Simulated scan of single mutants.
Amino acid sequence: MTEPIIININNEFDIVLARQKGREVSKDLQFGGVDQARITTAISELARNIYLYAGSGQITIEVLEENGRKGIQISASDNGPGINDIRMVLQDGFSTSGGLGAGLPGVKRLMDSFDIDSMPGAGTKITIAKWAR
């Protein structure tokens, strides 16, 4: 098992770096081009959310191996204000930033698994995974 890649998110350059690292790992795992794009899009959205809503946090990228299959797991964690209503932010069209609201529902659709843990005042951790076909 390879060591996790940890990218601290403090500015917009870090968002780009997280995307690049995700693309590199997904390419190394021989994900197809479409899945590489899905993974980098999901990472971009999670990193952007950290930057916009928490100010700083971390993206962690890990290689998964299970029953001969390989995959990628991405965790986004921060110590920001947390999410008051998780169900609401997972609804299509919901946006607190004036964006399109594709955010977290879009991330959930792009990946094979999606887990969110958030408490108001205590930050948020989102873990997503995609398995190679």
Rank of each mutant, 00 (worst) to 15 (best):
M1T: 14
T2C: 02
I5T: 14
I5Q: 08
I5C: 11
I6R: 10
N8W: 00
I9Y: 02
I9V: 06
N10W: 01
F13M: 05
D14G: 00
I15M: 00
V16E: 11
L17G: 01
L17C: 04
L17E: 11
A18L: 04
R19I: 09
R19M: 12
R19E: 14
K21Y: 10
K21S: 09
K21E: 13
E24A: 03
E24Q: 01
V25D: 05
V25P: 02
S26E: 06
S26N: 02
S26V: 02
S26H: 02
S26Y: 03
S26G: 01
K27I: 07
L29N: 03
F31W: 04
G33F: 06
G33H: 08
D35E: 15
A37V: 06
R38P: 00
R38S: 05
R38E: 04
T41P: 03
T41L: 07
T41N: 12
T41R: 12
A42T: 10
A42F: 09
E45K: 06
E45C: 09
A47V: 15
A47L: 10
A47Y: 13
A47H: 14
R48H: 14
I50D: 15
I50G: 15
Y51C: 14
Y53C: 13
A54R: 12
G55Y: 15
G55V: 14
G57C: 13
I59H: 02
T60F: 00
T60I: 12
T60H: 00
T60V: 13
I61V: 15
E62N: 05
L64M: 07
L64C: 00
E65A: 02
E66R: 08
E66P: 01
N67I: 02
N67E: 15
R69H: 07
R69G: 07
K70G: 10
G71L: 05
I72N: 02
Q73V: 01
I74G: 01
I74N: 01
S75A: 12
S75I: 03
A76I: 06
S77C: 02
D78H: 08
G80H: 06
G80Q: 07
P81M: 12
P81H: 11
D85P: 04
D85W: 05
R87W: 03
M88F: 00
V89R: 11
L90R: 04
L90Y: 08
L90I: 05
L90T: 10
Q91L: 07
D92V: 02
S95W: 07
S95G: 05
T96E: 15
S97Q: 01
S97G: 04
G99V: 05
G99R: 10
G99K: 09
L100F: 05
A102H: 09
G103I: 09
G103E: 12
L104Y: 15
P105A: 13
P105D: 13
G106H: 02
G106R: 03
G106Y: 03
V107Q: 14
K108C: 08
R109E: 15
R109K: 14
R109N: 13
D112W: 04
F114V: 06
D115N: 05
D115E: 10
I116F: 01
D117P: 00
D117A: 06
S118E: 01
S118V: 04
P120Y: 09
P120N: 10
A122H: 12
I126L: 15
I126T: 12
I126H: 12
I126F: 15
I128Q: 11
K130V: 07
K130W: 06
W131T: 09
